[in-house]
Design a protein around this nucleic acid. Structure first.
Length: 428
RNA sequence: GGAGAGAUGGCCGAGUUGGCUGAAGGCGCUCGCCUGCUAAGUGAGUGUGGGGCGAAAGUUCCACCGAGGGUUCGAAUCCCUCUCUCUCCGCCA
């Protein structure tokens, strides 16, 4: 969330931002609500001040054996009054917070104003798109023919939007996870994290999934636990309610987890294949840094994710999300989009964002500079590095051969016992 | 799941007849002094959040001793609920 003081003193700026993002949020009574909160609070504090003073006085008088009954009687009514205000205040505070929680982050100054994904500027392209001498197949056909993907049995076991991989299809998934982790750990200086895959509502609130996006989450019945929609949630919450030291920063974590999303509101989209699933694997990059470093850290985080695609020799492009396409918490986002030859489109495979202090304020993640008093909020960033399932899709589709086999990118072969091509195996 | 113990500042750790305790003491850290380096010594300072006043340095008020409620003029201290940690038993990958 944004800083209350910032919103209070820059209300017009915030309203203009909402418009650029295409948000319909009414802030007209925010000011009066905030003033009401403050006036109640200061009245309460005056009463409490009086109570503290007189209580001390009573203590002193009792020591001297003086009669305190009239003061005690007076304080009884003051206490009652305090209690009344104390019951009134949380409601008003909640109202202010509720509004504050619904305001998205201020976009970075470099973010282009636009309405939708069509307005996202392309920053760069990498790799050459292969010229197919035959009609390339979609990955689900390739996978089923190779007997490594089985969607109908996945549906029997769990339902739609689940997948089952077998044989080399399962091994390839595991190889991709290890390959990506190794690159980020050994070449990019990230620390590996294996977090809980279920988290409580405090954590979901800390990273912004709650309260606004509850319907996107799977909840465990009878528990205050949710299945994580991304490793961002547990990993960012590692430092919730902590005060870090500036010489610890930047902190860079990489984490493999499965991700669970209800995909509410995406009926009819990507109904076939691995693109949109209730459960998928992802290697996530998460950073905590000083405010002045977050612009640079976003560039390097994006480059780290790109390197995976480069090593796998998969053609992609980088787009910068425009104001209308930008996520709720993000100040700036680069999407990595992979080329899919069958559909002849670029599809998102990674989303790298700088959240500035927006998540940190909500999750209360602060740091202290050496030789300075006071605390500041850290900046948080994260990005996929990468989505495993979609990478598998990209490999199957971009490396498919006329005979139905699929060449394995060289960088991955050490993780597959040297295997260089996937051919049909085993009966199903 | 059963029985018991605990939760205090960056860390350790006092504080149970309720009342100058925002909290002793220690460690750590910062600044100064001293010692030709290092170590030791020595003096001072050192929580967070919010409100008011101030251009600022600052000043003042309120809150916070796991979380939430209660008793009381007054609670870190008493009562209730919850969460977490530890020990023992049971179960289990």
């Amino acid at each position: 969330m944004l800083d209350l003081k910032f919103v209070r003193s820059n209300l017009d700026l915030v309203k203009g931002m909402l418009e650029k993002r295409g948000y319909d949020l009414d802030l007209s009574d925010f000011q009066s609500l905030d003033e009401k909160r403050r006036s109640i609070l200061s009245g309460l504090e005056q009463l409490r001040h009086r109570r503290n003073k007189v209580s001390d006085q009573i203590a002193a008088m009792k020591k001297n054996g003086e009669d305190t009954s009239s003061l005690v009687a007076e304080m009884k009514t003051v206490s009652k009054e305090i209690k009344e205000i104390e019951t009134e205040l949380p409601g008003v505070v909640d109202q202010v917070n509720k509004v504050l929680m619904l305001i998205p982050n201020m976009p970075h100054e470099s973010v282009v104003v636009g309405e939708s994904a069509d307005d996202n500027p392309v920053i760069r392209k990498w790799g050459t798109i292969r010229d197919f001498a035959f009609n390339p197949l979609p990955h689900w056909e390739i996978g089923e023919k190779l007997n490594i993907l089985d969607f109908s049995r996945a549906a029997k076991i769990a339902g739609s939007r689940f997948s089952l991989q077998s044989g080399i299809g399962a091994t390839l998934e595991r190889a991709l996870i290890n390959f990506m982790l190794d690159v980020h750990i050994n070449h990019h200086d990230y620390v590996e994290i294996l977090p809980p895959f279920l988290v409580n509502s405090d954590s979901m609130t800390g990273t912004g999934q709650l309260p606004k996006f509850r319907e996107d989450l799977f909840k465990v019945d009878g528990w205050d636990l949710f299945l994580i929609p991304t490793a961002e949630v547990p990993v960012t919450n590692i430092h919730r309610d902590e005060i870090l030291s500036s010489d610890q920063l930047p902190i860079r974590y990489v984490s493999y987890t499965p991700c669970f999303r209800s995909e509410a509101g995406s009926y009819g989209k990507d109904t076939r294949g691995l693109i949109r699933q209730h459960q998928f694997n992802k290697v996530e990059l998460v950073k905590f840094c000083c405010p002045e470093d977050s612009d640079g850290e976003l560039e390097s985080l994006t480059a780290d994710a790109e390197e995976i695609l480069q090593r796998l020799e998969l053609p992609y492009r980088v787009v910068s999300l425009c104001s209308g396409d930008l996520g709720f918490s993000a100040a700036k986002t680069y999407d990595l989009e992979i080329w899919l030859p069958e559909q002849e489109v670029y599809r998102e495979i990674s989303s790298c964002s700088n959240f500035t202090d927006f998540q940190a304020r909500r999750a209360n993640i602060r740091f202290k500079r050496k030789k300075e008093s006071g605390t500041e909020l850290v900046h948080t960033l994260n990005g996929s590095g990468l989505a495993i399932g979609r990478t598998l899709v990209a490999i199957l589709e971009n490396y498919q051969q006329p005979d139905g086999s699929v060449i394995i990118p060289e960088a991955l072969r050490p993780y597959l016992d040297g295997l260089s091509v996937i051919k049909r195996e085993g009966a199903g």
